[in-house]
């Protein structure tokens, strides 16, 4: 039972942090980041590579966050003066390119062979047996911290400007707000949060390889955010739990149905696609959202 709870805390928790970063960008600022997973990958790889080279973990994690934030800001600066589609195109491209680089720069990343045997926080103190329990606690603490940070920001004047840009950028500008700068900030901060979730994922998995960071991961985050009602941090966390539930039930059911592994994972992905389609068509405000706060729509 405890193992079960620990595994929920770890997977759902890490994905909740990941999705909270996207919720800041999409839910509060209306930015179409279709390459969120790239920033998670940057967090994981930078943290692991630096720590394997003797850099202590905390600075290694921070370095990943800063680098991901800078990458997000750069992509934003290249596209945010243009129509919103361009950010979507460029971020999705970036996430694919990054994965290609991780796969092919073998001298650094060992390609699809992956990286393992890297340090994890407090691994000597805690010991192997209870490590996941400890890490689950750490993940939940980080989740709480990120949640509180984002809630504080969302309720602050800064968050108010962000929401105004999401609703109508021209209004924000007409009231003296530098909309471009706010969008870049949201993109950078959300990407840094994704990087943080990437570092935690690396600690949990003990083994990373580029295929952990497929484009589909980005859209898991999208489903979590939209399901919970875009612009709602608690909803995003709920969305992460629901999606986690979906995966564990479908895996559980696979045991009883005699599908081949490819067919069943394919079927699960078709379902994911249909969920995304269905949500956009029938319930864009999410499960918790109110029509008035509908983030997608008119």
């Amino acid at each position: 039972m405890l193992d079960y709870l620990v595994s929920i805390a770890l997977t759902a928790g890490i994905y909740a942090i990941f999705a909270l970063g996207l919720n800041l960008q999409w839910g509060y600022a209306g930015l179409l980041n279709f390459g969120h997973v790239a920033f998670m990958a940057m967090g994981a790889y930078v943290t692991v590579l630096l720590s394997m080279n003797g850099i202590p973990l905390l600075p290694a994690v921070l370095a990943g966050m800063i680098l991901a934030g800078a990458a997000g800001a750069f992509l934003g600066m290249a596209t945010l003066r243009l129509r919103e589609d361009y950010l979507a195109i460029v971020t999705i491209g970036f996430s694919e390119i990054l994965r290609f680089i991780l796969l092919n720069w073998s001298s650094l990343t060992r390609g699809s062979f992956g990286l393992f045997g890297y340090p994890r926080p407090f691994q000597d103190l805690v010991g192997i047996r209870d490590y996941n329990l400890f890490l689950a606690g750490l993940v939940l603490a980080v989740l709480l911290l990120v949640y509180m940070l984002l809630e504080t920001l969302a309720r602050s004047p800064w968050g108010r400007v962000l929401k105004s840009i999401r609703d109508d950028e021209a209004v924000a500008i007409s009231l003296g707000k530098n909309a471009f700068s706010y969008k870049v900030q949201a993109l950078a901060l959300g990407s840094a949060i994704a990087a943080l979730s990437g570092s935690l994922l690396a600690f949990y998995l003990q083994y990373i390889n580029p295929n952990n960071f497929q484009p589909i991961e980005t859209f898991y985050a999208w489903i979590m955010v939209i399901m919970g009602g875009s612009g709602n941090n608690r909803g995003t966390i709920l969305g992460a739990l629901i999606l986690w539930g979906f995966f564990s039930t479908t895996r559980f059911m696979e045991g009883y149905l005699s599908f081949s592994p490819t067919a069943s994972s394919g079927a699960r992905m078709v379902l994911i696609g249909l969920i995304l389609i269905g949500m956009m068509m029938f319930r864009p405000q999410g499960l918790l959202g109110r029509k008035e706060e509908l983030s997608i729509g008119k």
Partner: peptide, 18 residues
């Protein structure tokens, strides 16, 4: 709006591919 339709197109992409 456009953004909703773009997200939907992602869903279509995932469903067809799989």
């Amino acid at each position: 709006n456009r953004t909703a339709i773009m997200i939907l197109s992602i869903g279509v992409s995932i469903a067809i591919r799989n």
